[in-house]
């Protein structure tokens, strides 16, 4: 084995590399999460972890199971396709515990957010200049937000 004579130190160096590589592979096998690679190059369990995050908006279907009267009134009017939580805000808490009072939305803020006239809004959308339209009187004095056409019942 004359080729390897006087090359002992190189084999020692090689041994250091082999030990390092083996250690790396052992650690890798122990530390990589089990579900990694289940569906692709990521931790498969992450999908169900994200899917199980808590809800805040309950969804109009849930609201309508109890508030059938409002749902019925709403379905007949211009706001039929405006979902409950669009104005009332997220109410999953109220679904879990109905004793939690959701409170009444502030019409003074809410109505104008959509209906204050602006050249930027699409023309088909009903818009008013609030000061001119009601002269400071609250919108809900004349309109029922659940069915806003005045003929439909006025204030409630």
């Amino acid at each position: 084995m004359s080729v390897f004579r006087n090359a002992g130190h190189l084999f020692r160096l090689a041994a250091v590399f082999v030990v390092g590589t083996v250690a790396f592979l052992v650690i890798r096998a122990a530390v990589v999460p089990r579900s990694f690679g289940e569906y692709g190059h990521y931790r498969g369990a992450a999908i169900s972890e994200i899917a199980s995050l808590p809800l805040h908006f309950a969804g109009h279907q849930t609201c309508e199971t109890c508030h059938t009267d409002i749902a019925k009134m709403k379905s007949a009017g211009m706001h039929a396709h405006v979902n409950c939580e669009a104005c009332h805000g997220p109410l999953e808490k109220h679904v879990k515990d109905p004793s939690i009072d959701p409170g009444k939305p502030d019409a003074a803020v809410l109505c104008v957010r959509c209906h204050a006239a602006s050249a930027a809004r699409p023309k088909w959308f009903p818009q008013v200049d609030p000061a001119q339209h009601s002269g400071g009187i609250a919108c809900t004095t004349c309109h029922n937000p659940h069915n806003p056409v005045i003929a439909a019942g006025g204030s409630k």
Binding site: A51, L55, Q61, E85, A86, F125
Partner: peptide, 23 residues
Amino acid sequence: CTLCYHRITKGLTTACCEACPTG
């Protein structure tokens, strides 16, 4: 955005779609 993955996997729509008044 997760496209409200925790909602759409339960048959609900996303929070933004739920709250959009005009669809």
